[in-house]
Design a protein around this nucleic acid. Structure first.
Lengths: 187, 187
DNA sequence: ACCTGAACACCGTTCAAGT
DNA sequence: ACCTGAACACCGTTCAAGT
């Protein structure tokens, strides 16, 4: 890549990051280009779709979360590892309002630029889940996709201004549900 | 209202209903007007915002759900009443893809055309919850807004094509969580 | 190679002009 | 009263023309 192109690309990513943190992932691409003092077509040249731009922005965070899962696997109890990793995932999405919808769409669309990252993330969560299940600490009728869905639901909740105040509390309710043995219906 | 205006209004509602069931609540208003053989400005005259149109369409269903809650309060056990009503709410939203986001926004925005309907719905759910709590069958650290949020989460899940297959299963997980006594952490 | 302005087909909003 | 075409300011996409 030519030096000027690299510079444009990096600058666009920086501007896109702040624009998205301000207005959410549906921010106008034209607006990002304007704020980066660059033609809209230049943005589209570097990132042909909104998802491609998101992927470039999110990949670092995804990699960190995946790495974190690996650490927790050895450093914490199966129960603590799973719950605190889930909490990290949900907390992280608050930086990217609206990203959950894109991630949900990407998880089963191999064409999506976000697909690979989402699959990796799901696998990391699935490993922590399996570990907790093997220790008899998590219900065994759920799998990695269920955990992905539950995280997505809680992240979505945090995206809704009117319901966000309940997000922390309901995280506890859901986490508790995951850690309940399956088949035992209530008290 | 003049006869021709009434006719336009009814026709617009019918067309909007089918358009939304096909494409979700974000369908183009221009498209609805086109399919109704009416000027776009005429649609906007009857329904000044998208939410006003949604409200007119959803009010009937909301009233039915509220009435259903009243029936269940006397006809079923506190546990069955709550769970089957929640199931009805979630099932209903599959008709209106994307409506959950609008409902979440409306529940705390008194200016929204959907506000009153959402508040009524939440109150109906809250009554069923309280009844179950009084019988010692539901955790007592949640309230009507939490239930509204949980329903919204599950409805949102059904809206995501990739996660929808898990919606039924996770409904069971969440329902189970609601019916678990609070404070009792796992087995 | 890389960038860009301009044209395109869309969107929701608004309003003066018609019946 | 009610309806509507047209103008407006936006959006993302595409591409011929520039450097």
């Amino acid at each position: 890549m030519r030096a000027d192109a690299r510079k444009n690309r990096d600058h666009l990513l920086a501007v896109a990051g702040t624009a998205i943190s301000e207005q959410g992932v549906e921010v106008s691409l034209r607006d990002i280009a304007r704020r980066a003092d660059v033609g809209l077509a230049t943005l589209l040249r570097h990132f042909p779709t909104r998802e491609a731009l998101l992927d470039a922005l999110l990949r670092t965070s995804f990699d960190q979360l995946t790495a974190k899962a690996g650490e927790l696997e050895t450093s914490s109890s199966p129960e603590d590892a799973l719950v605190s990793w889930l909490r990290d995932c949900v907390a992280w999405t608050t930086e990217y309002r609206g990203a959950t919808v894109l991630m949900a769409a990407a998880i089963e669309d191999p064409e999506s630029a976000l697909h690979a990252s989402c699959v990796t993330l799901r696998a990391a969560g699935a490993r922590l889940l399996t570990r907790a299940q093997d220790a008899g600490l998590a219900r065994d009728d759920i799998d990695g996709t269920d955990v992905f869905a539950l995280v997505a639901m809680l992240a979505w909740l945090g995206d809704q201004p009117s319901l966000a105040p309940r997000a922390d509390h309901l995280f506890g309710v859901v986490a508790n549900a995951i850690l309940t043995s399956a088949g035992e219906d209530g008290p």
